[in-house]
Design a protein around this nucleic acid. Structure first.
Lengths: 223, 223
DNA sequence: ACTGTGTCTGTAACACTGTTACAGACCGCC
DNA sequence: GGCGGTCTGTAACAGTGTTACAGACACAGT
């Protein structure tokens, strides 16, 4: 079990291009970052590496496997950020915001992960840092797992909201148009607020703080 | 503007199969519900209706338009559930859980919406009900919009977690395997809790309550 | 040195996808 | 009758993931 990334560094016998599985995954990740998730095609990637498509398949298996490997790789790269903060709550919040901001900064890969249903894979390595902070804050066992998952729910939801592309669906279905023409019984001020573009970063921070405060014990004084 | 669903009921002249745009969307929705998002193919849908593919394109435009119409239709169907509850907070919470449960019950369409980035479209009609409850609870303007979006973040994140299919990615990348073999400094009890399958319905309820309590004014006495 | 054997790699194809050009059938209308 | 707009089928185009197959290369054995 666990036969991933167990290839010895000294060049194994019988190869012609010197391509590694890790090389292919790295090239695929780079391609997605440069030209978006839609550019990740087996033929395109093969051309990028100056190689035939079967070579890709020989090294990585299927496209789903390739995407999973890309997401895992990105997850590991994201996990290297340090966490700072004074109180336990602050540190947990900072770790969660690291996850969110890291995913936003590499939105191409985050979109890819979402489309393929591997978003939880992308966040996994950062969960570890979050769990460490949660345990430092005094949580353990099921309570810690619950807190972690609540936070992940908020981060994931925020990402979906932040990465959605309004221009993708037809004019009549855009959020502001829907609200402007809706027959719902809403105050005009509220309707205007709903039509406006939300500040998702601030929204994420507020929602996260509510959830963190709810799960993590600590000073109840702050507003 | 707003030229959607403005086709008169009496059969328009010049047709042969009597197919309506609404009929096609309904058939597509039914197909997705019965056989999953992957079964939604233009040829498959055409065969289902005993028709050629260009007929579909003639009526609905592109596949993206079709998906958007499906999601909007489902959204309207979901919006018919009544909301009950004693306090304002309870009613808001109940409305949010309606959104969540409705999406879970029709997970095929919810998955389709997620893959195509139209999840916010699916939830839109239910937002209206939620906003009504929020305004009843005393929120208006930006505060109301913020509360709504925080709640939507939680619902969306919960759906992503609930609908992810662990069997989709390779064995070594499943959540429990990752945690079991992780080198993170975590208590054994916490590790066990992280490997276990989460009760997402309960998780959603807890997280929602935290967010609702944070945004909606009301009795602070309950635990 | 000759022959394997296992590790890669390219050519070419298969089955499938969304999409469209085009020709034609049908309807109401003049 | 003919005209024109509303559909509808046939057939194709370009592109996708994937694989069967044949070959080239490096090393091991004799």
């Amino acid at each position: 079990m666990g036969k991933i990334a167990t290839k010895p560094s000294p060049a194994p016998p019988g190869r012609r291009t010197g391509l590694d599985r890790a090389d292919i995954v790295a090239a695929a990740l780079d391609l997605v970052v440069r030209e978006g998730p839609a550019a990740l095609t087996m033929r395109r990637l093969a051309a990028e590496l100056d190689v035939g498509t079967p070579t890709i398949y020989w090294h990585v298996g299927s496209r789903d496997d390739l995407v999973a490997a890309i997401v895992r790789t990105q997850s590991e790269r994201l996990a290297e950020r340090p966490v700072e903060g004074a109180t336990a709550r602050d540190r947990v919040l900072a770790a969660a915001l690291h996850i969110y901001r890291g995913a936003i900064e590499h939105r191409a890969i985050t979109s890819l992960a979402h489309q393929t249903g591997t978003a939880s894979l992308l966040l996994h390595d950062l969960e570890a840092a979050l769990v460490a902070e949660l345990e430092d804050a005094g949580l353990a066992g099921a309570a810690c797992a619950d807190a972690l998952r609540s936070i992940l729910v908020v981060v994931t939801g925020s990402l979906v909201l932040a990465l959605r592309d309004q221009s993708r669906f037809p004019e009549d279905y855009r959020a502001d148009v829907l609200w402007a023409g809706s027959a719902a019984p809403v105050t005009s001020g509220t309707r205007a607020a709903l039509c406006a573009e939300p500040d998702i970063d601030a929204l994420t921070a507020v929602t996260l703080r509510a959830v963190v405060d709810h799960h993590v014990p600590g000073g109840e004084g702050a507003a």
